[in-house]
């Protein structure tokens, strides 16, 4: 059963097509990673899924119900099932509201304010380390970590089944990013959530996601189970992106593929395969024919005329130190 299906999504900003035919499946209880560089459209996909950006084409199906077919009133209810964790959680809190009213906001919006519901939220807040003494504070009186938790509890108070996390570890020191990721994993099991994790941090994506989709210039170029995709990427872009990841392992550094050129503008994508101008393996065919995504959706799939052969997976290595 899928928690969320995005089918053939197209997102436009005026004349610019930022996302061009993206399909995603988020299974219930899993964490799906969405990776890519700036301008690839991953944030636009996230915004469309949480309802902040309209789809120019395509459908969004939430727990079996297609949003585009639902009556207007039902749409709001469906859309609430998906909540967003903002990249800057402190900025996502209304500056002139106390923590108490911020946390009560989802209940008031859904008109489900009751003493029981409020007790549940306070208990949830306390279970992740937000004491009652914080309730009367304003956002600017919170530490970064506290603001992050308040934003998290507020999102969970809307009782979502799907959480979209936009760069949740951006700007976090490595010694505390684990704390957040551990918390998210615990909550996933406890509350039966599914996650869509948008990130450019490949280490984090590699460690905490079950499956991953790689975007380049508004399209998905490859997707599959995380461990398999990291070890046997078929698309040259995936291979280059993964190899560009800075590593402590000197051995892996030597296999680096440094791409030439810059990210082309999505307003004027190259013909044929969008990656052909930077691809070290491009053939004449790549400039003419658009490669289609091959393989079963949800399993391994890639959009490339000349995919890289899978090599036997290297033996897992222990973390340095």
């Amino acid at each position: 059963m899928n928690a969320l299906i995005l089918k053939d999504a197209v997102i436009r900003y005026d004349r610019l097509t930022a996302v061009d035919g993206v399909s995603l499946e988020l299974r219930r209880g899993e964490t799906l990673g969405l990776v890519g560089e700036s301008g690839c459209g991953k944030s636009s996909v996230a915004r469309a899924i949480v309802g902040l950006q309209p789809l120019a084409a395509g459908t969004l199906t939430i727990e079996g119900e297609t949003l585009q077919d639902a009556p207007a009133r039902r749409r709001t209810d469906l859309q609430r099932r998906i909540q967003l964790l903002f990249q800057d959680p402190a900025a996502s809190l209304s500056p002139r509201m106390t923590v108490r009213s911020l946390l009560a906001e989802p209940l008031k919006i859904q008109k489900s304010h009751s003493p029981e519901a409020w007790t549940r939220i306070v208990a949830l807040a306390e279970s992740i380390g937000l004491g009652q003494q914080l309730l009367s504070r304003y956002p600017h009186q919170l530490s970064g970590g506290q603001a992050r938790r308040v934003a998290l509890v507020r999102a969970l108070a809307a009782e979502p089944s799907i959480i979209v996390a936009d760069e949740p570890t951006a700007g976090l020191d490595i010694s505390i990013q684990g704390e957040l990721l551990n918390l998210l994993r615990t909550l996933r099991g406890r509350l039966g959530l599914s996650y869509l994790l948008i990130s450019h941090n490949l280490n984090v994506v590699g460690r905490v996601t079950d499956r991953v989709a790689v975007m380049y210039l508004g399209q998905i170029v490859e997707s599959g189970p995380t461990a398999d995709l990291f070890r046997n990427s078929a698309h040259p872009y995936t291979r280059a992106l993964l190899s560009a990841n800075l590593t402590l392992d000197a051995g892996r550094r030597r296999e680096r593929i440094v791409l030439s050129g810059e990210l082309p503008s999505p307003s004027n994508p190259p013909s044929g395969c969008r990656f052909h101008k930077r691809c070290p393996l491009a053939q004449p065919r790549c400039t003419r024919e658009i490669p289609v995504l091959q393989g079963r959706p949800g399993e391994r799939s890639f959009a490339c005329h000349f995919p890289l052969r899978s090599e036997p997976a290297p033996a897992p290595q222990a973390i340095a130190g």
């Binding site: 967003l84 903002f86 809190l93 906001e105």
Partner: peptide, 14 residues
């Protein structure tokens, strides 16, 4: 377009 306004929209506020 600041995040705190968008957060309200995501919560479904009218």
């Amino acid at each position: 377009n600041s995040p705190f306004i968008e957060a309200e929209k995501v919560l479904g506020a009218e």
